[in-house]
Amino acid sequence: MQQNSDKAFPNRAPTNGQLLSMFERMLTIRRFEERLGEDFHAGKLPGGVHLYIGQEAVAVGVCAHLDDRDRIASTHRGHGHFIAKGGDPAPMVAEIYGKRDGICGGMGGSMHVADVSKGILGANGIVAGGIPIAAGAALAAQLDGDGRVAVCFFGDGAANEGVLMESMNIAALWQLPLIFVCEHNGFSEFSPSDTVTAGKIRERARPFGLPAELVDGNDIVAVWRAADRAIDRARTGQGPSFIEAATYRIRGHLEAEAHFLSRSYRSEEEVERWRRNDPIDRLSRHLLSSEICSEAEIAAIEARIQNSVEEAAAFAERADLPDADRAPGLMFAGPAPGAA
C-alpha cells in the first residue's frame, strides 16, 4: 500500500530560484571542505576531518525543505549537513580549528559540530548514534503537534547497526515525523559496501511499512523531489519514510588515511568515474543549458563563496584558544534556577 500511495503526494519540482540557491549551498559546502582538506594537510587542524565532497546534493536536497525548527542528526561526515541546514560556516571552521569562537567553543571539533538554534543536533562520532536521536526529536515534534519533522542522515555502513532496525520499528509503530536518509557512498571506512552489507538497504525499511525509495544522490532534483514527498508525509501526520541516496565518497574516509594505510582499497578509475558524475557539475550544466543563469552569475556565486571561505579561515586563525580549564565546567548544567 505504501508503495502506491506516493501518488497521493506532491509531485513538485524545484523552482529556478530554488535550484540556484541549492547550487550556491552545494558549492559553499564544497569550497569550505576543500579548504578544510588543505588546512588539514598543512597541519593547521588539531584533529582529523571526514570530508563530504561528492555527496553535497543529498544534504542540500533534503535540507532545502527544512527550516530552523526542524531537527537533524548527522554523522562523523557532518560538515555538509551543518551548512545545508543553515549553519554558519565561519564558527564551524573555527570549531574545527579548536578555537573559543567555534560553534561548540572548541570542545567538539569536526565530528561534533552542532548548532541547536538551527535545529542541528550535531555531527556524531558514533556510527548510527544520530539515528535514535533523530527518532527522539521526531517524538518531541509529534508531541508538539506543530508540523515539525526530524531527519537522520547516516551512511550505508551505519545501516548495519541494529539500532537502525529498532528505530525504524518504533518510528513506524508510532508514526513519527521522521525521515531516514541513508547516504550510500560505496564504503564503510575502507570496506566496499557490498563486502559488509547483505541485500539492499532500502529493502530493510519496507517490512516496517515505511515508504522507501532509491534516488540518484548526485542528482539534486531527484533528491529534492524524494525529500519533498517524504517530508510532506511527515509534516501531515503520515509517518516516517526512508530514502536511500546513491552517491560516492570522492575523498578518503578521513583525510589522514594516506598516512597510515598500507595499500589502497579502490581504483583510481572508479574515483575518476564518479568525479565525472559530480553533483555540482551536473547542476551547473543544467543551470546553464536551461538558461536559468549565466556563466557570469555562476562566477559571481563562486567569488562570493571564495570570499566567505577566506574570511572564515582568517577568523578561525585569529580566534583565541579556549581557556585550558574550560571543559569541567561544561559537564553539568547545574540545578534548575530557583531550586535549592
Binding site: 588539531p46 579548536g98 572548541g106 567538539g108 561534533h112 584558544l321 571543559a327 561544561l330 559537564m331
Partner: peptide, 16 residues
Amino acid sequence: VPDTAMPYAPVAEKHL
C-alpha cells in the same frame, strides 16, 4: 583525569 568528557581543543585536553 578530571570527571569530564575529553575536549577537542589541544589546550583543554592537555590540561586534563
